[in-house]
Design a protein around this nucleic acid. Structure first.
Lengths: 211, 211, 211, 211
DNA sequence: GATGAATGAGTGTTCATTCAT
DNA sequence: GATGAATGAACACTCATTCAT
């Protein structure tokens, strides 16, 4: 599909991808300007539309590209033999932080993309989001040792509570960072806070309060 | 400030408000078109800007108007003498559902507004969001009987977990509804599900598992 | 013609006139906004157009009104029995400065009006300007003792040179004042400079260099 | 900066430039309509803003372009080795008339531009005007033989008087031409009149009346 | 493959003027 | 006399996309 694009010299590919990521991440889908992208990438207007038939296609290409980069690396690093749910989540958080440091633009782009709500891409993108979420949840839960959870509660719901908590915590941290002038996340503090939530969950939802 | 607008005949006020709510809710701040609003409201271009000096002011007016409508009704209905946190949350969910049924457009608008991220309104709107959130959290937690919670965990964090869970549950329900063709939420099912989460939390976080 | 307007209570007349003078003086004909005028004057949109059938008529009314105020006072003060041209001009400059101090807004308005160039009022206003200029030149030259001028030059041209010089000097002073932040004219310095030009002219164009 | 524009086919460049000159000259900066310009030039709305990022930039481009055209030609024609002030001024008037005949629209535009007073361009344009005026005055006075002037007067002021006179004469001629239906200036008559002013100045301000 | 000129409907906003009350 | 709601054409400017070269 994008073989034309991938036949380009690597350096130009990168210029285009980086320019587009930057623009979409900063301004969101609707307000991202193809003009800015070509200017930043140093290519002509026509060329962009030679490789991508329209803005929407460019966005979806970009999303898939970015998603693959981080997902590949994520699944390479995560240890799926770890059967304890909290250790698994802890890993996930850790890897996410590493990726954030290694590919800051890409992660910002993905995060912003997930919050995108433009009418033009809504239907297609919501579908994609749901699929990805479903896949990830399956993987995250795969092989988890559920026997550690108390058996008088619905484990599925407990897992949801836990996942949601970490999502919300992450959102809040992101939001706080955005508000501040220097936009810096203190990852050590985040980890510490996460640990406290872990303990609470273990106390509340593991057999014998995790003892 | 908007006394000019409120002196208009009620019916025309409503046409304008409804048209604007609809447009902003559907397309978000940036993509909402004042052209569409006037067309839908059946008024002239000039009139809209006779009452609201610009799009931003219209948006903030609309938000305040909508927020007041639902907040007033919410606080009229909520029983702040109820000191049990779960009963209080249960009330809140119940009232929210009622409001959703009574003012579906207004609630959609408010929810979308909270997810808005347009550069043009960002600073002002973020401030407003923060203020409202702070106020609401204070009220929601006011007078809550914290002695029911187990004392070996940080109650503040537990409260956060609980709030987040219901927010996420609500988001998920909304999203599911949006995906379906008929956009209908089965509130009875939602309630039932919420009850199950209540039980889990009580078991995990109340003294003696709530017994 | 404007009897309707003049039957208004004096105080309201003044509010309207002052608001309009201010707006036209500040922004020029085209950019002056009738909205601003009514807001400043504290009257309704409709009322302005009740008294003046349109913006153009308001402008011409205003100009005539202002012109009459200053012209009346000017001709009351000027001593037309003074037959020496330079003394006469010196008087004129002096009176102009006095008027500038007494009616700063009105004089600013008139000066700006003379520089107006809007297509909408061009034809009519140019005609008026020419008429006024013609009348004034006649009066300024009336009874002047031309015998003091050397007889080997065309006196009419000399008079023009002199008038032009003082006009340009005045323009330059005005412009300089506009450039500066505090917009203040140092009239004493202007007088002194004018005197130096007087001397030059007397040396160059009076019999025996004015001795 | 405007290389994009200059790469256009010459004929289209000219259509755009001429249309813009005409519109700005006729209506002034504020009232000139980019809509009219594109209509007259036979191009699309978008194209104009493809070449010029906004109305202001278009105006300044146009001014510089026009100014350069006439300034280049002016300085090619003027003889700066002529040290007599009046001969130099005579040359200037003559060349100006030639340029007026050769590029009537351009000269009209420049003259109107110098009288422009729009708030939007005020600051920048005033600065430019001042710079140009300073440069021109330097050149015009460069190498002038001041020893011919009588030494009992301030030569600088005399030079001002002379310059102002020719400016005013030129303004008056222009105005007269504008009033008439056919807008034609009789240059021969203007020259003759100018000569008479020369003589007056020589008599009044040269040593021994220029004998 | 690569360019960038060209499009035209779209945006929010302002304006003098009218007219029913 | 006095109000201010109402109009709609006009404004400068942006945009994703096309296409001849």
């Amino acid at each position: 599909m994008f073989s034309k694009f991938f036949n380009l010299e690597k350096e130009k590919q990168d210029r285009i991808i980086n320019a587009a990521i930057k623009e979409f991440a900063q301004k969101g889908y609707d307000n991202a300007s193809t003009n800015e992208i070509v200017k930043e990438a140093g290519i002509s207007k026509g060329l962009l539309f030679h490789y991508f038939k329209n803005k929407k296609q460019l966005f979806f290409f970009l999303f898939d590209y970015c998603y693959n980069v981080v997902a590949d690396e994520f699944y390479k690093k995560v240890d799926l033999t770890e059967r304890d749910f909290f250790k698994r989540i802890r890993q996930a958080v850790q890897i996410k932080v590493e990726l954030q440091t290694k590919y800051p633009d890409i992660l910002t782009f993905i995060q912003e993309a997930f919050m995108q709500d433009s009418a033009e891409i809504k239907v297609e993108f919501d579908k994609k989001k749901q699929e990805l979420t479903a896949v990830n949840i399956n993987i995250i839960y795969e092989g988890i040792d559920l026997s550690k959870f108390r058996d008088d509660v619905d484990v599925q719901k407990v897992l949801k509570i836990i996942s949601w908590t970490f999502e919300k915590m992450s959102d809040e941290e992101l939001l706080k960072a955005k508000m501040l002038p220097n936009h810096k996340i203190d990852y050590d503090k985040v980890f510490l806070e996460a640990e406290e939530y872990f303990e609470i969950f273990i106390k509340g939802f593991y057999n014998d309060g995790g003892k």
